[in-house]
Design a protein around this nucleic acid. Structure first.
Lengths: 196, 196
DNA sequence: CGTCAACTTGACATCGTGTCAAGAAATTGC
DNA sequence: GCAATTTCTTGACACGATGTCAAGTTGACG
């Protein structure tokens, strides 16, 4: 694993992310990626066994770049549920547009590729984990709406923070990111903590 | 257009719906459909120009079968917004599991096929129309939360009633249909009419 | 100089969609 | 009941994309 090989690998991933972000996600065939990286199509296969693995690696690279952990640390710092919920929603909600292009490509592969599906579900499980933590904080404070189990509340919050709903409101309906965050927060609050 | 041709066409559509509903939606290639209908693959192309058109026709056939219009008429009969909202949510929410198998196949095609995308968006526009009507009824009664425009409220309601959210809660999280309806109704009420 | 890793070139297999042409079988019209 | 027309079959083929294989080239480093 020489320096050069690592560089090429990184270049492939960067180029892939660029292609996905630059408007035409259907133009990210293996040959498009290779061309953009200044390589032959086969050279790409020397670094990634298949397209699914390449896309998954690209999401991981993106995570490193934007340091999602640091972003989420902020919400983990909040002690009370009432503070943690908006912090988490702002953090994840703000991260969705960043991962959306590559997430979209992965979601498109899910239909056919089991590996892509597993990778995406794995990422969503991580989000769910964050949801569960926020819900637990609410529960600890006794703020959870009566009759709502923590698990149910987590399901609900994860649903409200799904990429699909974000896509619907911001992409299809044209909401600003700010409006999206505000409305989802309001929704989550009333759904989880009940009226009042 | 003889009787026989119509019959064959209908048989193809029924068989397609059966395949989609019967667990293995990825096993609905043109050849699978043909085999299940007792036809050659090419015969299917004599009735439908391509897979997208076939799936779209299948959704239309499904609509006829379950008479979605009759179902929605019930919600249209409600006069006040407070009555109309739950009626509409129950009607559409109850319809989702019926159209889910074919909707899923169409959604999977959306990534590549522009025609499939247009067909699905067209259907979703119809749902949005129902959402708008329910929102309008609330607005007429003065029940809409202050600061929320009718359009925004419609966006929100359509998002809450999206197939994706239904899929997440009932398929991924295992909620019962009843729990789903209850929770979405509660969410919609608090989101649209505000606390109280 | 020789070796090894990275890369290229070009051919090929596979899968699913969609097309085409020639002919068989069934239905319909007269 | 026969002829015309429609429905369907058989079998071949093109295409686009993924992924594989084999042989050869280039360049760095000891």
């Amino acid at each position: 694993m020489s320096r050069k090989s690592e560089d090429t690998r990184a270049r492939i991933l960067d180029v892939t992310l660029n292609l996905l972000e630059s408007g035409a996600p259907e133009r990210t065939r293996m040959s498009d990626i290779a061309k953009a990286a200044g390589l032959s199509r086969q050279a790409v296969y020397l670094h990634f066994p298949n397209r699914a693995d390449l896309l998954i690696a690209a999401t991981k690279r993106l995570d490193e770049k934007v340091d999602i952990d640091a972003t989420l640390a902020e919400s983990r710092a909040a002690t009370t549920g009432a503070e943690r919920l908006p912090a988490f929603i702002a953090a994840w909600g703000g991260h969705i547009p960043v991962i959306y292009p590559v997430g979209r490509a992965l979601m498109a592969m899910m239909a056919t590729d089991a590996e892509a599906r597993a990778a995406w579900e794995n990422r969503m499980a991580a989000v769910r984990h964050g949801c569960a933590a926020a819900v637990a904080a609410l529960a600890r404070d006794g703020d959870l709406r009566p009759g709502l189990t923590e698990e149910r509340a987590t399901d609900l919050l994860a649903g409200l923070l799904s990429v699909s709903l974000w896509e619907h409101l911001t992409q299809a309906c044209g909401w600003s990111q700010e409006d999206y965050i505000d409305e989802i927060l309001r929704l989550a609050r009333t759904a989880l903590t009940g009226p009042g």
